[in-house]
Simulated scan of single mutants.
Amino acid sequence: MTVKQLRAFLAVARTLSFTQACEYLHLSQPALSLAIKGLEESLGGRLLIRTTRSVRLTPEGETLVPLAKRLLADWDSTEEVLRQRFTLQLGRLSLAAMPSFAGNLLPQALMVFRRRHPRINVTVHDVINEQVIDMVRQRQVEMGIVFEPEATGSLTFTPLFSDRFVAVVPADSPLAQHPALDWDTLMSRDFVALQRPSMVRRLLEQQLGPRHVGLKVAFETHQLASVGRMVASGLGVSAVPSLCIRQMQETGAVCLPLTDPVIERNVGVITWTPHELSVAARALVDVLVEHVSPPGLLADQDEAAR
């Protein structure tokens, strides 16, 4: 039983005329007759009684009419919903992003996406870096925004930009007057760190190597906002990815370029390789690639490094 056969049957059932049904469907009489015959053969009996002077429905044909109407209505509705999704007139999208990105750079990208596709509903899961990767791997979300994983496995990573660590110091500290800081100077002060298993904490310890044993961790917290507030209050200094600069500045802390060494890691979009992204997800990736850029302080850090 095909959609074409059902449409042919309903046209004849409405008009009780093969001639009028042919005009309505823009079909020839042989094509219409063949469609009705194929439908009757697939169902196992006659649906119409046709004579040279009239057409009428059999009891089975009468039974099929409301069922066929419902089937075709569902089919048309399905076609329309999918057409709207493919043309980005309708749909929903779920993504996960690490807090440092979700709270700083993502809102601007979502504004661009919303202007382009106002009828796409977007759900954002603001979770730590490791959870983002797990959610993508378990297909709880279509895409995630993370620091580049050490091993992607079945995942695909699309880089957006290379992010670097910056120093976070109190506004009234003598350190705030420096154009840039090196790690040895920063680590000579009490340090405010994110708690493990934070990716930011792990990156620091991995990149600093033997140096990190000299890290005077005086305070630990799970929240980046708390790091900024503790530093602004004079409890110590810290180091965060540059995409957190605005968040740190809002707490009253000062951010400075960090050198010797420059610690950096790619930030990008991670997706599940075997799973084809929806049209909406691909459109959001395009927006992120086009509009997301590292904070301006990175240019200053480049100059300081030279």
Rank of each mutant, 00 (worst) to 15 (best):
Pro107Gln: 01
Ala109Pro: 05
Met111Ala: 14
Val112Thr: 13
Arg114Ile: 06
Arg114Lys: 14
Arg114Cys: 10
Arg115Lys: 14
Arg115Tyr: 10
His117Ala: 02
Pro118Ala: 03
Arg119Leu: 08
Thr123Ile: 10
Thr123Phe: 05
Val124Trp: 06
His125Phe: 14
His125Pro: 05
Val127Glu: 02
Ile128Ala: 04
Glu130Ser: 14
Val132Pro: 08
Asp134Pro: 01
Met135Trp: 02
Val136Ile: 09
Arg137Tyr: 03
Arg137Val: 00
Arg137Ile: 00
Gln138Pro: 02
Arg139Gly: 00
Gln140Thr: 04
Gly144Gln: 08
Ile145Met: 01
Pro149Thr: 06
Pro149Trp: 08
Glu150Ile: 12
Ala151Trp: 06
Ala151Leu: 10
Ser154Val: 12
Leu155Gln: 00
Leu155Pro: 01
Thr156Val: 08
Thr156Lys: 00
Phe157Gly: 00
Ser162Trp: 04
Asp163Ser: 13
Asp163Thr: 05
Asp163Gln: 05
Asp163Val: 04
Arg164Glu: 15
Ala171Phe: 13
Asp172Val: 05
Ser173Val: 10
Pro174Leu: 12
Leu175Ile: 12
Gln177Asp: 15
His178Ala: 15
Pro179Glu: 15
Asp182Thr: 08
Thr185Pro: 05
Met187Glu: 00
Arg189Asp: 14
Arg189Cys: 15
Arg196Phe: 10
Arg196Ala: 14
Arg196His: 15
Pro197Ser: 12
Ser198Ile: 10
Ser198Lys: 05
Met199Val: 10
Arg201Leu: 04
Arg202Lys: 15
Arg202Phe: 07
Leu203Trp: 05
Leu204Tyr: 02
Glu205His: 14
Gln207Leu: 02
Gln207Val: 01
Arg211Gln: 14
Arg211His: 11
Val213Asn: 09
Leu215Trp: 10
Lys216Ala: 15
Ala218Gln: 09
Phe219Pro: 02
Phe219Cys: 10
Gln223Pro: 03
Gln223Met: 09
Leu224Phe: 13
Ala225Gln: 14
Ala225Gly: 11
Ser226Pro: 00
Ser226Asn: 07
Val227Phe: 03
Val231His: 06
Gly236Trp: 10
Val240Cys: 08
Val240Pro: 07
Pro241Phe: 09
Ser242His: 02
Leu243Cys: 15
Cys244Trp: 05
